[in-house]
């Protein structure tokens, strides 16, 4: 049992990163029923952006968030207003295909600009720092990742539950036509939701870049991990997304105990298991 304690703990910490991948997906699906296939590629784009800022300024990797978050949020707002708004409707093919096209463009654009060599954000002392907890070692960076993920979930949950904009998000999600009739500016609101999603993408990108190598084609796997976390947790609930991320992290970490090749596969298997026994996820929104 004791030998499983460490992988479970490391899995929970890894789950923090997966939660970060998932938050934005959960958010824009909740507000406008949109699935962005390029979600993971935007995470990788944010990682490259952070790398460029770091090279240009020599700042601490975490300080790059000051630039990457607003730039990505602005990009998200513009993407929704200019491109994605034209694809919303009853037919789900256009948003899916357009974001698929965007994914291919980002991947190959990054490949042309930065080659396929893997990069990493050197996070200096953060990379090796750890806390001892009895016989267990907890890396400070993974712990920080999990803490930030939980803070993001808490922040979004509060935003949705307690603020005027959160009310407007929920109302528009329930019934866009009536919300519009009441005076909600839905195009602006959708773009705000996308901007918020892209802010979480930026944070996820910076933490990904500090924790592991990334290359132009690292995006799709991030999309799939985020997607699995959302489905495992259940659609429409941010705390569910956190639970989904943690479960996926633990599943992968335990899978890696069997063999390193088994890590990602174990996550996929848990995803299909949940789909088989609880198709609506563990904590679906009660309607």
């Amino acid at each position: 049992m004791a030998s499983l304690l460490d992988p479970i703990l490391q899995g929970l910490l890894l789950g923090g990163l997966y939660t970060m991948f998932a938050i934005g997906l959960s958010l824009i699906f909740g507000v406008m029923r949109l699935v962005n296939i390029a979600h993971g590629d935007f995470i990788v784009l944010a990682a490259y952006m952070a790398h460029a800022v770091l090279v240009a300024t020599g700042w601490h990797p975490l300080a790059t968030l000051l630039i990457v978050v607003p730039v990505m949020a602005g990009l998200g707002y513009a993407l929704q207003r200019v491109v994605l708004a034209r694809t919303l409707g009853d037919d789900i093919l256009p948003p899916l295909l357009v974001t698929f096209g965007v994914a291919v463009i980002i991947q190959n654009g990054l490949l042309s600009a930065f080659t396929s060599n893997a990069l990493r954000l050197p996070s200096r002392e953060l990379e090796t720092a750890s806390l001892a907890l009895g016989s267990l070692n907890i890396g400070v960076l993974p712990l920080l990742t999990l803490a930030v993920a939980v803070a993001l979930i808490f922040g979004l949950e509060t935003l949705f539950a307690r603020t005027a904009i959160g009310r407007a998000f929920r109302a528009t999600s329930d019934d866009p036509e009536t919300a519009t009739a009441i005076g909600v500016k839905t195009p602006h609101l959708f773009a705000l939701a996308t901007a918020l999603c892209f802010a979480t993408i930026a944070i996820a990108g910076v933490f990904l870049a500090m924790r592991s190598n990334f290359d132009p084609f690292a995006g799709p796997a991030r999309l799939l991990f985020g997607f699995e976390a959302v489905i495992i947790g259940g659609l429409g609930s941010f705390w569910g997304t956190l639970a989904g991320g943690l479960i996926l992290g633990v599943a992968q970490s335990l899978g890696a105990q069997i063999s390193p090749q088994f890590q990602v596969l174990a996550g996929h298997i848990v995803f299909f298991l949940i789909l088989a026994i609880r198709p609506r996820g563990l904590f679906p929104k009660t309607a």
């Binding site: 407007a168 009441i182 005076g183 909600v184």
Partner: peptide, 16 residues
């Protein structure tokens, strides 16, 4: 709006 409480329904309209 099903996700909103009575007061939230009213507040949303007042906000806008």
């Amino acid at each position: 709006f099903r996700s909103l409480s009575v007061e939230e329904n009213l507040r949303l309209a007042a906000d806008h």
